[in-house]
Design a protein around this nucleic acid. Sequence first.
DNA 1: CACTTGACCTGTCCGC
DNA 2: TGCGGACAGGTCAAGT
Length: 294
Amino acid sequence: MPELPEVETIKRGLEHLIVGKTISNAKVLWVKTFSSSKNTIKQQLIGCRIQSIERRAKLLLVNLDNQYTLMFHLKLTGQVILVLKNQQRLGGGHPTKSMAANLPDKSTRVIFNFSDGSKLYFNDQRKFGWIKLVKTSEVTNDPLVCRLGPEPLSKDFTIDRLQAAIKRHSKLAIKGIILDQSTLSGIGNIYADESLHLAKIHPGTKGAAMKPGQVKALYKAIRQILQSSIKHGGTSITHYVNVFGKKGDYLERARVFRQAGESCRVCGGKIIKIRVVGRGTYICPKCQKLSRNK
DNA sequence: CACTTGACCTGTCCGC
DNA sequence: TGCGGACAGGTCAAGT
């Protein structure tokens, strides 16, 4: 499930690989994934050059030279994979089977062709992801983008902001607060659990029970975890791959996520899976004790 | 009005 | 082996 670090990794990969390329065709294999009409695609997409790539929260923004932007949301299982013309040798290393050989496959939803013969595949097993073509100037007015809170790694995300959100949602479990994209943008289930473990906070702690020291610890933990994951190229759980189709390796060093039954690296206690705000949640019960009192 | 549930989907895993 | 059901989780819409 791509969250901020995964989308950031994809963005960095695409940036130096497809900027400058010209889109020569786009094939939509599943209409709901990219519902722009054939006419719109023909008029606003084909023949355009890719000018720059950005990321906002979990959104990937591909800016074209005609004042339009392709917005991608990968949701749970979306993948963006580039196959160069001489695909087998891409990256100069060993070909991996996800790299080229079998694309398109049954989860390919959209194919973008470039004039140099390379192709960008949007694969999405569960069809929750989507692509939209919008005017670049309208991106910030997009209903989803409008609601997004600050980027957690930017200066706009401060302890005070986090504290204010916690106060505003005092009855909600802290995990629910940090998953709320209007509080801070880009955190999903994995990094919520990872951050809370690093900060030694039980995910079910109500906002009202959060002590100032915990808020600070959580703030620092979120930033540290995200930075570390970006450094390692994101997490790989079944679906996430970078633009080469290669998996990230963050999960190999996940602290708690999907580690039920394993030992906590901090205290040696046994990691368990629980349910918080309706989501599967991993904690070390010894490190992350639930405090109900203020 | 705050909170919960359902919808969107497909693949995987578990129990019978 | 096969089948039904639960589960996975980002976001929005609908319901309580």
